[in-house]
């Protein structure tokens, strides 16, 4: 039972046209992917070219100035560094502890459900709302002022869900037998957690911390909302002093600026000379966040590859 040749030809043509459609869609898919990638490339190249003239050593050691060519990012990068220190000191212990509790200790209870749903929701709250929280609570109710510590705390709360979720995922991938072996040798729950669970999930936790920090370093809106100054031509007091006790925490209370705020400030000036500064600072910021993200993704990749329980 063979079909007449014209029908076979029609079926072949049908198949050929469908295969062409497949090919057309695959091409469109690659184009869309390319569009996304070319956009980042354009963004980065445009910033590097616009800001090229500003890449001098002095750019890192000068304060902002009225003259664009002499302005630098000293107060901005020092401010970012200090704020990030506070953020890390708050977000890492809190986030890891919360993740450990949710995975290892949490009973099946409605309180656990509430905490879980709440963390999911927090991850979706716009960053500017965290700024409003900080303005209403930290600045005015607690009287912490528009200082490094307020900014650090705000960003810590902002990245807390990222750290918690990463910690939980890392812990969840450790098989039950590790815990059973530890309990079998007479270890308590905390000893098991401290000596086995946390160390084994460290690469995953580290990935989450790096992703969170790279998000925090680029956040602008919440810092603007708490009222960071945009023009700061001085540095916060040094953390190490020459008089006893040699360590000072005055920097926590100091006014500050950070890299994204400096970029925003320079971008919104009408004078194009300042746009070059914004581009140079932006290129540095993007390079920082991209390399942090790449490091985190690489860590996760290695983790998936090497550990087979």
């Amino acid at each position: 039972m063979s079909l007449p040749p014209e029908e076979i030809a029609a079926i072949r043509a049908n198949i050929a046209s469908r295969k062409t459609n497949d090919l057309i869609f695959a091409t469109i898919g690659i184009c869309c992917l390319g569009f996304a990638l070319i956009t980042i490339a354009a963004l980065f190249v445009d910033m590097a070219v616009t800001g090229w003239a500003r890449f001098r050593p002095e750019f890192f050691t000068e304060f902002p100035s009225r003259r664009a060519a002499q302005a630098g990012i000293l107060s901005a990068w020092v401010g970012s560094l200090l704020v990030m220190t506070v953020t890390a000191m708050v977000a890492i212990p809190l986030g890891v502890a919360a993740g450990v509790w949710l995975e290892e200790y949490a009973p099946k209870h409605w309180i656990t459900d509430v905490i879980e749903i709440n963390i999911n929701n927090l991850a979706g709250v716009p960053s500017i709302v965290f700024g409003l929280l900080a303005l209403g609570l930290f600045v005015y109710t607690f009287g912490l002022g528009q200082s490094v510590r307020t900014a650090g705390l705000t960003l810590a709360l902002l990245i807390l869900p990222v750290v918690i979720v990463a910690t939980r995922e890392a812990i969840r991938s450790i098989p039950l037998m590790v815990r059973e072996a530890s309990f079998g040798l007479g270890a308590t729950k905390w000893q098991t957690t401290r000596d086995h669970i946390v160390p084994y999930s460290m690469p995953g936790i580290l990935t989450g911390i790096i992703l969170g920090m790279s998000r925090a370093i680029g956040e602008t809106a919440p810092i603007i909302t708490i009222g960071a100054l945009t023009f700061i031509a001085f540095l916060p007091p040094a953390p190490i002093t020459d008089v006893a006790p040699f360590i000072s925490f005055e920097w926590l209370k100091a006014p500050f600026t950070v890299m994204p705020i400096q970029i925003f400030n320079w971008t919104s000036r009408p004078d194009p000379a300042f746009h070059a500064n914004a581009a140079a600072a932006g290129a540095i910021l993007v390079a920082m966040t991209l390399s942090m993200n790449a490091l985190a993704i690489y860590l996760r990749f290695r983790l998936r590859r090497n550990i087979k329980w």
Partner: peptide, 24 residues
């Protein structure tokens, strides 16, 4: 290869995207 690159794209600070929107 493509998925991590997309993830990196979502990590670019929004203030930089703002610069890009206004001046590019």
């Amino acid at each position: 290869i493509a998925k991590p690159i997309l993830e990196v794209l979502s990590g670019i600070p929004t203030v930089v995207f703002g610069f890009f929107a206004l001046l590019f």
